[in-house]
Nucleic acid binder design. Structure first.
Length: 569
RNA sequence: GGGCCUGUAGCUCAAUGGUUAGAGCAGGGCGCUCAUAACGCCUUGGUUGGGGGUUCAAGUCCCUCCGGGCCUACCA
């Protein structure tokens, strides 16, 4: 039995994520996790909320809440929504956990022992009114290049020129609007990634089967300009893992915390510890190659914005520690999902957010569309028309109607149990051949994390059932040869169970509904289609399920189109 | 500015340099009547963004121009 460690990029705590965030990491990770479990493999599927950083502090302040309370509340909200989408995490952790604090500090010490931490004193903008140092993006002013009045400290959105906050004319705090800014000296810890460059380069070069998107971003960072740069791993914030602690090999870091991007990936490990503490399980056999993790296959899922941190920073942390931690084996990255001619926008409330999606339709509808249109090779686009068409055609007509037509046919002609009599012939043999071929193809696409191709293959498997029924025509055969019609009907009812098993990673609720209808708990993966189509024997009782997927009407679609065009309300 | 990705049928997407560029949806025709007005079969539709080049052979490789997108290290 293979062992799969699967992590999804951890969503930021600040607010509810939109469908683009979902399809970029959590959903495909869940698909893979469910598939591996269905194949009988041992799976540890980890996700968490990424809770530290400036935006969390500001969002909490805006909500008038203590940041810890705010994060706890938002974590529960996100966890509830994740359950709603049937994301099957073994554990949904929190980067603010005690386990992560200990582990993050541990890694920092190990990196320091390896000579990979250096202290840097630099000058940064401090807002006296806000009482905090401001990240470049939290400073606005007039662009010295083009005169644009809302240029950010890092870049002017009008002329795209790269800026430094000190370049801005009349700089002000984005938070308070205050112009009471000054440059202050501050000391930070830097991870000497430049020292790790050739090691990381060799590692990336060895990953010839990774998505182009993943390796090209990594190589860009490795080779751009002077090559991989050292990176600050601390910040002047209150909310985070304290950078000064008992046993720290440095001093003068009081009141500072580790940068979110240092502690966030470490949370993958810490979340597994959280899981172990909760369940009594053994986290080390997933993460320590000296403690049983050497046979683990580790796959990460993320949007393209996360790639540099997962291909370079986090591996630098792992490798630099000189400890036997499990390193990622495959990084599946995704492009962005756009919304109806533009981008999803959290700030402008443009697009569909996860909570809203579930208010409108059940999880499976969204899961199917998102996964079958996953932005793998390029950015892809959500349109309501496309969504409506896919749901109505693929789910309602092809799959749902198949279940409906065969169960109702059987009920009316034979009653609600698999009828006896008849035998299979050439047509059935041909179907079995096709199914075997397609199921093997489906497995291959799933193993390769080719999400859209897997979805297309699954759909083709559904279509094969309709083709068979149409060609066999048991409703006609029944008039002259009821035994033969019974054999055909038995096969088709077994197809329903087979479809439930194969479709479960994509549409778990519908899969359960199909199994419930067939009154079986048999979820065994079809090693051979012939055997799978004999799983439910003659006389096995079933119930005719309710409509599996309802159709989306034009009026509904238009209504939603209006509702989600502008501001979230 | 630099780097990367991308442009293929009306739409969404496929195609290790190798038959006549393929699917789904939409459109047209036929069939079926078990079914959620569902299903099946057949079919229309392409100067592969433009131009040039390499090659026996180019959607695929090279150059160039045009369009779309992302990243560019202190948002996360």
């Amino acid at each position: 039995m293979a062992r799969h460690l699967i992590t999804s990029a951890i969503p930021y705590i600040n607010g509810i994520k939109h469908l683009g965030n979902l399809v970029g990491s959590q959903l495909p990770a869940d698909l893979f996790a469910r598939y591996q479990r269905a194949r009988g493999n041992e799976v540890m599927f980890i996700c968490a909320t990424d809770e530290h950083g400036t935006p969390a502090e500001l969002a909490a302040a805006k909500a008038g809440k203590d940041v810890a309370d705010y994060c706890a509340e938002m974590h529960d909200v996100q966890a509830e929504i994740a359950r709603g989408f049937r994301l099957s995490f073994d554990h949904f952790g929190r980067s603010s956990s005690a386990q992560n604090r200990v582990l993050t500090q541990h890694f920092a010490v190990k990196l320091a022992e390896a000579g990979l931490i250096r202290e840097v004193t630099e000058k940064q903008m401090y807002s006296i009114t806000d009482g905090r140092f401001l990240p470049d993006r939290y400073i606005e002013g007039t662009c010295p290049n083009c005169g644009f009045e809302s240029a950010r400290g890092d870049q002017c959105d009008n002329c795209t020129k790269q800026l430094d906050p000190v370049d801005l004319i009349n700089p002000r705090s984005v938070i308070s609007g205050s112009t009471d800014l000054e440059l202050r000296e501050t000391k930070h810890l830097f991870l000497r990634q430049s020292e790790m460059r050739s090691k990381l380069q060799d590692w990336i070069d060895s990953k010839t089967d990774w998505p182009l998107l993943t390796t090209s971003i990594a190589k860009k960072w490795l080779n751009d300009g002077d090559g991989l740069q050292d990176r600050g791993i601390t910040r002047d914030l209150h909310w985070g893992v304290p950078a000064q602690f008992e046993g720290a090999p440095w001093s003068g870091m009081d009141g500072k915390v580790f940068y979110v991007w240092f502690d966030a990936p470490i949370e993958y490990i810490a979340a597994t510890e959280e899981w172990a503490d909760k369940t009594g399980g053994d986290w080390a056999r997933w993460w320590r190659t000296d403690r049983g993790a050497d046979d683990v296959t580790y796959t990460q899922f993320m949007g393209k914005d996360n790639v540099p941190f997962h291909t370079l920073s986090f591996p630098a942390t792992i490798l630099g520690s000189n400890e036997p931690w499990k390193l990622v084996d495959y990084i599946k990255s995704f492009n962005y999902l756009n919304y109806d001619g533009g981008q999803f926008s959290t700030s402008r409330g443009r697009g569909v957010f996860m909570d809203q999606a579930l208010e409108i339709l059940p999880a499976d509808y969204w899961r199917w569309w998102l996964l079958s249109h996953a932005p793998e090779s390029a950015d892809s686009e959500f349109t309501w028309e496309n969504f409506q068409t896919s749901v109505n055609k693929d789910l309602a007509d092809v799959l749902g109607n198949f279940v409906s037509r065969i169960t109702k046919f059987c009920r009316s002609k034979f009653g609600e149990a698999l009828p006896a009599g008849g035998a299979w012939g050439e047509r059935e043999a041909a179907l079995i051949d096709e199914l075997n071929t397609r199921i093997r193809a489906y497995e291959t696409f799933m193993e390769e994390k080719e999400v859209r191709k897997a979805a297309a293959e699954l759909r083709a498997i559904w279509v094969a059932g309709n083709e068979y029924l149409q060609a066999a025509a048991p409703w006609t055969v029944f008039k002259t040869d009821p035994d033969q019609a019974a054999a055909q009907t038995r096969l088709a009812l077994n197809l329903v169970r087979l479809y439930a098993v194969l479709s479960a990673p994509f549409i778990p609720d519908a899969s359960e509904a199909m199994l419930a209808g067939m009154q079986t708990e048999d979820r065994s993966w079809p090693a051979d289609a012939k055997a799978a189509l004999e799983a439910l024997p003659v006389g096995h009782a079933f119930t005719t399920p309710e409509v599996l997927f309802r159709k989306i009407a034009d009026e509904e679609r238009e209504d939603w189109q209006q509702r989600f065009a502008g501001t979230r309300g």
